[in-house]
């Protein structure tokens, strides 16, 4: 007699911050947490884009693992016990936010994204009231060559949302990453001025997914740049539905 095959697992149970939750196999920790109103911080993750895992703000503790795991990229497993908000994690997240502020020149008061900036919001949320790391004050330039948009490297946190939206959603592949380490920069095509790019469609998606004032529309003054991030999940859902 042939052995009976076990049915595949449909749902699983786990624990996030001492709350028993259910999840579907294949979901990430971040997704499951959000389904249960537990919001894990993050800057590089954006609904509708591929997972990058670079900002390290969404790190969580998983019992039995000796390393912290990025909740945006780690799939859940049966019986997993996750802590998303321990004092240790809070302290690490604060330093990571401070690192981003110290890395380049973030001057909120004159930034067009002041008040509409995810980095700023995150800092407030995590209680970063001052930066105790030395500011690195790098000499960073700004690309104003595009007719409609501006790329200000001073405000860039290298979340690469613009790179991903440009390739994955618009399909233009204009935005890319150049250099490495502390000298890493967002580049257009083969590192040319944005205005000279032959591939850019000027769709503006990169501007609206950018969490900070690194990519903005021209003609905006301090605190005037409003970003419409909700378009992306909508676009992704509609495209999926069409398929």
């Amino acid at each position: 007699m042939a052995r009976q095959k076990l049915p595949p697992t449909q749902t699983l149970t786990m624990k996030i911050d001492d709350v028993d939750v259910t999840a579907k196999p294949g979901q990430t920790i971040k997704d499951v947490a959000r389904d249960h109103d537990i919001i894990i911080p993050g800057l590089c993750y954006l609904d509708g884009l591929s997972i990058w895992g670079g900002c390290r703000l969404c790190l969580v503790e998983v019992e039995g693992m000796n390393k912290l795991l990025a909740s945006c990229s780690t799939e859940v497993a049966e019986g997993m016990v996750v802590h998303t908000d321990s004092p240790k994690l809070r302290a690490y997240r604060k330093v990571v936010i401070e690192m981003l502020f110290a890395e380049r020149n973030h001057v909120c008061s004159v930034c067009v994204s002041n008040g509409g900036c995810e980095l700023q919001d995150m800092a407030v949320e995590l209680g970063v009231d001052h930066v105790h790391l030395p500011y690195m004050d790098p000499d960073v330039n700004l690309d104003s060559s595009n007719d409609r948009f501006r790329l200000d490297h001073n405000r860039c946190i290298m979340c690469t949302r613009c790179v991903r939206v440009c390739g994955e959603i618009e399909g233009a592949f204009t935005k890319g990453i150049g250099g490495r380490g502390i000298d890493v920069r967002i580049i257009n095509d083969l590192n040319m001025p944005w205005g000279e790019s032959q591939t850019c469609t000027s769709c503006g998606k990169c501007v609206h997914v950018c969490p900070t004032g690194a990519l903005v529309e021209k003609g905006t003054a301090a605190a005037e740049m409003d970003k419409r991030r909700a378009f992306l999940p909508y676009l992704t859902i509609m495209r999926e539905a069409q398929r």
Binding site: L100, M158, I182, V184
Partner: peptide, 21 residues
């Protein structure tokens, strides 16, 4: 390490530069 950091994640990109300083 600072020279060889790829720049993808914040702690390594910024942290190695700060530690070197």
């Amino acid at each position: 390490c600072k020279d060889e950091s790829c720049g993808k994640c914040t702690p390594c990109r910024v942290g190695t530069a700060q530690m070197l300083d």
